[in-house]
Amino acid sequence: MSVVSALVVLYNTLISDSPSVSYFISANIPVYVCDNTTNGNIKRSNVVLSQQLTNFYYLDMHGNEGLAKAYNKGIEKISTPYVIFSDDDTIYGSNYLPLVRTWIFSTHADVLVPIVREVNSDTLISPCVYKHCRFAYLDSLESCPENFFAINSGLVVRRDIFDSYKYNEQYFLEMIDYQFIRDMRKEHKNILLMKDNLIYQHSSIYEDSYQSRIVRYNIDKKDTKIFYSNGIRERTFYYLRIAYKRMKLVCEKFKCCH
């Protein structure tokens, strides 16, 4: 029996085009795919291909239900001791899984966090720090504090944690990973950084479509309101943050029209 399964959420992506799905299939571990795809042709292709794969479990979300619902649905089906969470475009090196197994057996940690860099800029995007209500990238791992935050890409979590924990399904896309780390720290879980395990991730900050930024803003507005709800300071920061983002979009639209 495998010690770990992979849980990948797809959105309008062919199974065959996902580097993360391809990596986990080739590694011969159980792969659970929650498909949030809304494109009918892509969905049909994914259904057909999933039926041809072994040790592969396809879960149709019947539309884009967001990350939190997809995570919870996938976790319910998984029985291995650990779960790897992954975006569909995460890029893993050949040593990712061997290192994960080494860390699992040597530490028995509750949560294992890889180093994540942005694929285009090589920026260190995870772990990161939360200070004065803001998340900030680290200049280097040497400056990483013990109470770091992390994104979900490549995150390895003990399955039994989810016997008493579920992702908050009020979240759709943003802040889900940060909320998870915040909750795990409140529960005093053992969160370790795998300093020798590097993966790469595409970042939404490189989206160049104005319309895609509008969509992301509307999602961000709803999700961050949930995260920044702990006291007056966070709520004040939330409204200032959203006002600033809205102003940037208005200015951008004005420039495009003139």
Rank of each mutant, 00 (worst) to 15 (best):
Y11V: 10
N36R: 04
V21K: 07
E76N: 07
F24D: 11
Y23H: 09
L97W: 00
R246C: 10
Q211V: 10
I151A: 07
L99H: 03
G74P: 03
P114H: 06
R241S: 12
S212R: 11
Y200P: 00
T224Q: 06
L7K: 08
S212G: 11
V33P: 06
Y178Q: 14
N64S: 08
S121C: 06
F237W: 05
G74K: 07
K73Q: 13
F56W: 05
G93V: 14
A27P: 06
N230W: 12
Y228R: 15
R44C: 07
N120A: 00
F148C: 07
V3A: 13
S106E: 07
F149P: 02
R235M: 13
L124N: 05
C133S: 10
G40P: 01
L97R: 04
Y228D: 12
F227A: 10
V111I: 07
D177G: 04
L124F: 05
F85T: 08
K225T: 05
V100S: 03
S229F: 10
H202W: 10
Y58H: 09
S121E: 02
N39Y: 01
Y206H: 13
D17M: 14
I176T: 07
R235C: 10
L138H: 00
T37S: 11
F172M: 10
Q211S: 13
S50A: 15
G40I: 13
T102V: 08
Q201Y: 04
I91M: 08
I176C: 06
Y58L: 13
